[in-house]
Amino acid sequence: MRIGELSRRTGVPVPTIKYYVREGLLPSGELTSPNQAAYGEAHERRLRLIRALLDVGGMKVAEIADVLEALDAPERPLHKVLGVAADRLGGADVEQDDAESAAARSVVAGLISRRGWRTHESNPAAADLSRTLAAMSRLGHGAFVEVLDAYADAAEQVARADLAYVERRVAVEDMVEGVVVGTVLGEAMLSAMRRLAHVDASARLFDAEGPETGTGTEKGTGTD
């Protein structure tokens, strides 16, 4: 197909497709003449993945480039690909040097040890968790650590579901892409489902008059 058809099928403007090619995110089309190139299903699939990581996953172009590089390395183990994708989901590498931060790092190290997780407190996700717990403590919600293991139980269950999906993929390419999709887009899906569950749990716990009193179950806002 020509680049115009690729644009129509994916909804991505032609200039944007050319930009992705220049940045190395999307392979160049096969030249059929000096000014024409042909694109195939693999281009369409890669383009849809790029847009999903950008629009749903909230990743930046440079982060997507790192993930795609890992995805295209056939010798790289799935576990390493998963690590590259997960590391790009982290927040800014900024951490305050105060008592709350130190206490949070200790809590996270204890959690990792207690759960027997095969990772380390230097993992970017652990750093994100430490920053989050420290921020909660500064706001007077340090007691949130009391429910940390309940969150860990849920996180383990979600992680097992993610990787069970990956194991069902037959082709190696599908498996590698499944790791990326399950990590990046699964993060967005879990966040959305958590918000839905919050509305339901709040209504059941605090709304004695039923679901039509402005808890968000009717209009989906959850803020009235």
Rank of each mutant, 00 (worst) to 15 (best):
G90Q: 00
P74W: 11
R105M: 01
E100V: 09
L68N: 10
H79M: 12
L129T: 09
V67Y: 01
G110V: 11
P74S: 13
M59A: 12
A52M: 09
L133F: 05
V166G: 04
V67C: 04
D66P: 01
R168M: 05
G178C: 05
P124D: 00
N123E: 10
A102Y: 00
M136S: 12
R114S: 14
Y165W: 15
V94A: 13
V67F: 04
R168E: 06
T183C: 12
L111G: 03
D93S: 08
R115Y: 00
A73T: 15
A103K: 11
L185F: 08
D72Q: 05
A73I: 02
L185N: 08
G58H: 09
R118D: 10
S101Y: 01
Q157D: 07
Q96W: 03
M175L: 13
R138Y: 00
A109Q: 13
L78P: 02
H79C: 04
V56F: 08
E167V: 11
L185E: 11
G116P: 01
D98I: 03
V147A: 14
A159D: 03
G58F: 09
S106T: 15
A154V: 15
R169N: 07
A73F: 01
G83T: 08
V158S: 07
D93C: 00
A125Y: 07
G91D: 08
Y165P: 02
G90F: 02
Q96K: 09
G83E: 15
A127F: 00
A109I: 07
V81A: 04
V179F: 03
K80E: 15
R160H: 14
D128P: 09
H141T: 00
S106M: 08
E75C: 06
P74I: 13
V56R: 10
A150Q: 14
L71H: 04
H120G: 05
Y165H: 14
L133C: 10
Y151C: 11
H141Q: 13
R88D: 01
R76P: 06
D162I: 10
D72F: 07
N123Q: 10
E146I: 13
K80M: 12
S101T: 13
P77R: 09
D97Q: 11
E100H: 14
P74G: 14
T119D: 07
G57S: 07
R105T: 01
R118T: 06
R169S: 10
L71K: 08
A154F: 14
G178V: 05
R131L: 06
G182F: 03
D174V: 02
D87A: 15
G57V: 05
E95H: 13
D174H: 13
L54Y: 11
W117C: 08
V107A: 15
T183L: 06
D66N: 13
D93R: 13
P77F: 12
N123A: 14
D98S: 05
T183Y: 03
A161I: 11
E63G: 14
V61K: 00
A73E: 15
V172M: 11
M175A: 13
L129M: 14
S113M: 03
F144M: 15
D174L: 07
T132F: 09
A135T: 09
V84Q: 02
G116F: 07
E95Y: 12
A164M: 05
S122W: 03
A102P: 01
L163R: 05
P77N: 12
V176C: 03
V181Q: 01
A150I: 14
L185C: 09
E173N: 02
A134P: 09
A92H: 06
M136E: 12
R138M: 04
L185G: 05
S130C: 02
A135Q: 07
E63Y: 01
A125T: 05
L148A: 10
